[in-house]
Design a protein around this nucleic acid. Sequence first.
DNA 1: ACCCTCGATTGCTCTTACAAATTAACGCTT
DNA 2: AAGCGTTAATTTGTAAGAGCAATCGAGGGT
Lengths: 246, 246
Amino acid sequence: MGKQRLFQDIAEKISDFISDGVFPPGSRLPGERDLAERFGVSRVTIREAAIALQAVGKVDIRTGSGIYVSDDQPAAQNALPEVSAFELTEARSLIEAEAAALAAKSISDESLAELDRLIEEMASSDKEVALAADREFHAVIARASANKAMVYTIETLWRMREELPTVKSSYDVVCYDDAQLLAKEHKDILEALKARDPVVARRAMREHFRRLISTMLDASEKEAMREVQQRLRASRVRFLDSSVPG
Amino acid sequence: MGKQRLFQDIAEKISDFISDGVFPPGSRLPGERDLAERFGVSRVTIREAAIALQAVGKVDIRTGSGIYVSDDQPAAQNALPEVSAFELTEARSLIEAEAAALAAKSISDESLAELDRLIEEMASSDKEVALAADREFHAVIARASANKAMVYTIETLWRMREELPTVKSSYDVVCYDDAQLLAKEHKDILEALKARDPVVARRAMREHFRRLISTMLDASEKEAMREVQQRLRASRVRFLDSSVPG
DNA sequence: ACCCTCGATTGCTCTTACAAATTAACGCTT
DNA sequence: AAGCGTTAATTTGTAAGAGCAATCGAGGGT
């Protein structure tokens, strides 16, 4: 980790100090010359670190006065919250179902054709391609809802699915274990949209995610079982070892 | 506004060049020495500007190679999308209704008491207090859904309501024009939650927003009428002026 | 008690210099 | 002629030192 630029190192250290309460919000941290001496780097480096921190809103540099820790740390501003795969899937179930219901009333024939194409693409053996198609399938429906707030929300939920490590691993395990079922669910959704039936579209979308949650539960159950077995085996080894002394 | 720091000036200029397509995404911009000469500043200043731009993701500095414009400009990353007040309200209606339905099944007595208190607070004549109470009312219900993805989504939607200027003005006009109705709607929602009835809670929440949309439509209609009248009056003046020559 | 001035502190920019990383050119080998 | 490794030039990264400008606080004058 020490191979990044020096000023980034310093920026991280200062940032850590801020999070750890060494430099409370609103407080003024030591002068550039002082910091340079403490960290054993040049003033330029301190300055670069400070500018980087200022650019992301963590500190506020005031000419002739000093460097001050921002009152409101921008933590929750950009960062996605730590949600479980279950929570995310439940939220997607509810929200995307409503998007599908909206879409059913106004989706264009072009979008329907696009969805047809994407379902075929999801059958691809290339995981990357299939995943991208999956994403686009849901995105097309979101856009067909003709509500930019819904589109943005659904995009954000997908970002959680990809950018949160724990969620991503859960999904990757579960998502393509039964491509057959997955394809059928997507087709059901598409059929409902083609029929312009909001109620059926909503139900189909919910069913899609309901099945996903159920599969996740099974998987996590199996995982739990496996862990228990492993622990038992380990303790058995330990027991056998300790039960046959010298 | 040339009174800000020099490196920020430079950073803005470079940023403008990027937005204007002078430096296309992915391209490499001139070396630090080159830029320094062109802008008539020192290399340090160029460097500080570059670091500020890198911190917000607009460029990527590669050691020994150069400064490159980021492929995906971070516009859509942090920024809220431009949504209309109608779109936002529709999305809130659908999403918060589902949150209420979830909450109905698991909300605690403490949260219910809190909601009671907040409804009283919303009756305050102080707009600030009433607005904060309104926000908290919806936030408490969101949290009671016990789904962090829903909580985050609803928080984000509220941010749109407050941070997007056009939306904010629409809401501020409409929201407190009939405090009587507003209070009744909130009470209806609370009653449904107390009864632990998801279906009624969902309906009550939807009704709340449905009425809001309807009021907005009325208001925008009145606004349109007013504009038309004003335009007519203006042209009448012009007509009278020009119809009496000399 | 208030305002003004002045000096010390601090951030801001410049210059010069050298180290480290990357890239491109060159020459060698196959 | 094509591929490959070495070298040299280019570019970013960091350091040290200096002077300038903005800010803040203490002290003096009204």
